[in-house]
Amino acid sequence: MSPKKQLGFIVVATLLLTAVGSHFVAGWIGLPKPGAAFRRIGPQSGPQVFCAGSSLLQFGLAWPEISKALGQGMENWGIGGSSPSEWEFSQPLATNANLMIIGISVYDLNELHLANSRANVVPLSQTIQDLWSAGMSRQFSKRLLSQYPLAYLRQVFPTAGNSDAVLVGLRRKLPSKMRSAAAAEDSANSMVLPKEAVFEFGGSTDKLSEWDTAKKLRRLALMRSETQGEHTFGGPKQLALHRMLQRAQASGGNIVVVLPVAPLYAHEFLTPEVNLNFEKALTEVQRAFPAAQFVRLDQDTPLQSDAYFSDPVHMNGAGRDIATEAFLKALELPSQKL
């Protein structure tokens, strides 16, 4: 074999072996496949409620109770770490919806926090259009657009760019004897999604207030590394939110639930400037959609405690109960003022 052919053979064999290895690890640790997971609850007949939100909304409210209170079935297409940019593409799937409940938070609407499978859901043309319309920075645009080649690469190497998920998966799989104390602690708190297609996420008993300081610091460091500790609003996510509300308004009604984050997260990342910008973004939405009902759970005083959160952004079972009660109460009242 000539040296040229030999190098060609080595390159092909290397890529092939790597692809096999990557698929094997992805399967072994149960790496979630990109795309939405459909879940529903309540009566199947009649108009449905389309629930759009990330895991903050899914874990934050007791959906069976809400379905019962509204007397309607509820549908949700869940995507890990998602935001309006991704939910927008589930909206046309809810063909029989007369109401949209959309859950947003300062964490979800942060443009710098990107869903891992965004490029699998949002077409490139839409992303370019949104980046252009929102006048986003070159640095951010590069970051967002680089997700597209990565999505293609993941067809062959599913673990590429998923190092956090791989590390968590490996720690779960490794025999308990081999785990370090810190690793076990970290994985113990990871969110467990329901295996069935039922829109009921249960209530976690973990309490952020009981985390030791080291664990809190490690988690905050991970969150900081993703966004450089910054929050920006008014980009592609905001544009997608407007489009969703517009569509939902045309086919029924809108309830916008503003979800809280843990005081730990707020203390670490939410400067007065960030809070002000978030409020500006919400005001803009409310001005554009005056008919939409806003439920501000983030301003609900009882939830201002780390004891009601299972990690810096997700509510636990106790938090969920308080939030659900407040949500149902708010449905009986006219829209809360921002």
Binding site: Q6, F9, I10, A13, T14, L15, L17, T18, G21, S22, V25, R143, S146, L150, F157, T159, A160, G161, S163, V166, L167, S225, E226
Partner: peptide
């Protein structure tokens, strides 16, 4: 050849599993 394939595969697999893309 087999040593080279093994070495390069290990490197690329490490990047695929643990590489930080951001």
């Amino acid at each position: 050849t087999h040593i080279r394939i093994g070495f390069y595969s290990a490197l690329v697999l490490l990047i695929c599993l643990l590489g930080v893309t951001d």
